[in-house]
Design a protein around this nucleic acid. Sequence first.
DNA 1: CTAGAACCTGACGTTGACGTCAAGGGCAAG
DNA 2: CTTGCCCTTGACGTCAACGTCAGGTTCTAG
Lengths: 148, 148
Amino acid sequence: MRIGDVAERSGVSTRALRYYEEQGLLTAERTPGGQRTYPESAVERVRLIQQFFAAGVPSRTVLQLMPCVEAGQATPEVFQVLEAERERITAAMADLAAARDALDRMIDIANHPTPEHCPALREPAWSPYDPSGATVAAGSPVATASAG
Amino acid sequence: MRIGDVAERSGVSTRALRYYEEQGLLTAERTPGGQRTYPESAVERVRLIQQFFAAGVPSRTVLQLMPCVEAGQATPEVFQVLEAERERITAAMADLAAARDALDRMIDIANHPTPEHCPALREPAWSPYDPSGATVAAGSPVATASAG
DNA sequence: CTAGAACCTGACGTTGACGTCAAGGGCAAG
DNA sequence: CTTGCCCTTGACGTCAACGTCAGGTTCTAG
């Protein structure tokens, strides 16, 4: 396969593929004229790389994992990287879940603008922000009175 | 509170706080001498911003959500943004889960280097990559023979 | 043999959330 | 008034994963 085929089948640009090679993530044979030739398996390889990138794993770390992908076994150091990255991803998922919950509270507020119908306002997700310094709690009697 | 206090309590740099102000995410009163003064609630505000940033929400989008945080209600456009962002985060969580599963398969391989003891090798997670073009399946008779 | 599509290397541009340095000003203590 | 810390604006630097452009080469169809 030539680089354009791999690009099309894996859904990335040819520039990206050359970048992967530059980073040592993907190697290619060359034709006598110097053009890159890939095996079919390169498509899956690229998809795996993309999967890691999508998870925020930097190319240098992916590079560290590549021997494991190729050999089917890991040195203790690679094993450390594997577990560390797994933990990082778990933490990232927790962050995402927290942000999603924040959005959910905001959506709740958007749907029910009065405290009576809005659990998010009764259990304030964050303090209202007023640079002038007046501190008013979201579920305070004042707010309740203004709505009741 | 002065900027240093907010920075310390919220765990970000003063540079970050000025950047937030530059982006319109955080406003501050000023002393006659021109120094920034924040209410206590600024700390929570900054934590919320950080939470969104950690989830990959760009500052421009956070800015769009700020009226909702302040007013406790949302225009239809803001509502669209809320739901779109929620969906993006959900997709990102799926990506993370997929990458974590890939790592798990690799960890499995690392722990059980022979196909007999390794489910991940019997159900190949990705094709082995060999730029020379020889295509060999992970669970093929060849691999099994070499291990048996 | 020739057109043109696809490929090559090299190099600079982009984006976001800051880091960092420089040169100067505000503020509370003594 | 001075010391010293914290603050100010302004501006350039960073890093990652590419995008994009330029100028030239290789491959393939006719």
